[in-house]
Design a protein around this nucleic acid. Structure first.
Lengths: 109, 109
DNA sequence: TCCTAACATCAAAATTATTTGATGTAATTT
DNA sequence: AAATTACATCAAATAATTTTGATGTTAGGA
């Protein structure tokens, strides 16, 4: 055993860790990254526009959108029968490097 | 049904999506974020230094370190009996916003 | 050489997350 | 008012991840 370091649990608080965990979890899925990428290109899109593009049953798409929504990475706006989804760009920019913004939010570059 | 959009699967390639999925998955865990945060403070640390700090059985810690390692977020250097781990700072900076770098890699700020 | 410390790895169990298909609800159209 | 479209939600099935405890490996010390 080597010298015992002074106790230091790191400087990020527990609730912050939980918050970032949630956001990274939301990003940690190819299908959701693809959704983000599509929303970046198309600005604002309803679920019915999305299904034919990404080839996914509607309930599955709703599930993934909800995960992104709960992580506050996207926004939802109801307009009559349709639900329009769009990116929460400021939130994403606060999370991702400029380089990644270029990859996933092409409107950035 | 509204107008059918021109087909556009997003612009990020499949292998890239898989790569980012892996990296975000590695980040998507409080315990691993805590490890990153500790490595940021302590620069280079062996597993035996880490166990008492983060209160986790050794096999579990090894498991989480491996996930970070496979995502190329940390580096490992063997020195005799000890394995020293350190952050892959450039990789993390390519991933995280400046703001997040400040949170998790405090040496940044 | 034998013992121990510092790990990694493994298999089983436990926990979480995802997928699927069915059903529910509200708005719109006919 | 009935039918249809655009979703959300639910419960069950499946799959992936994490945790645990045991065992294996290697290097250094007695």
């Amino acid at each position: 055993m080597k010298e015992i370091p002074l106790l230091n649990n790191g400087s990020v608080s527990k609730p912050d860790l939980a918050k970032y965990e949630q956001k990274f979890k939301a990003l940690a899925d190819q299908q959701r990254l693809q959704i983000i990428n599509i929303l970046a290109v198309k600005e604002s899109v309803c679920v019915c526009d999305l299904t034919p593009i990404i080839d996914m049953p509607q309930s599955k798409l709703s599930y993934h959108l909800k995960i992104l929504l709960e992580a506050d990475l996207i926004k939802k706006e109801k307009q009559g029968t349709w639900n329009y989804y769009s990116l929460n760009v400021s939130e994403l920019k606060g999370l991702l490097s400029d380089q990644l913004c270029c990859v996933f939010l092409p409107s950035c570059c």
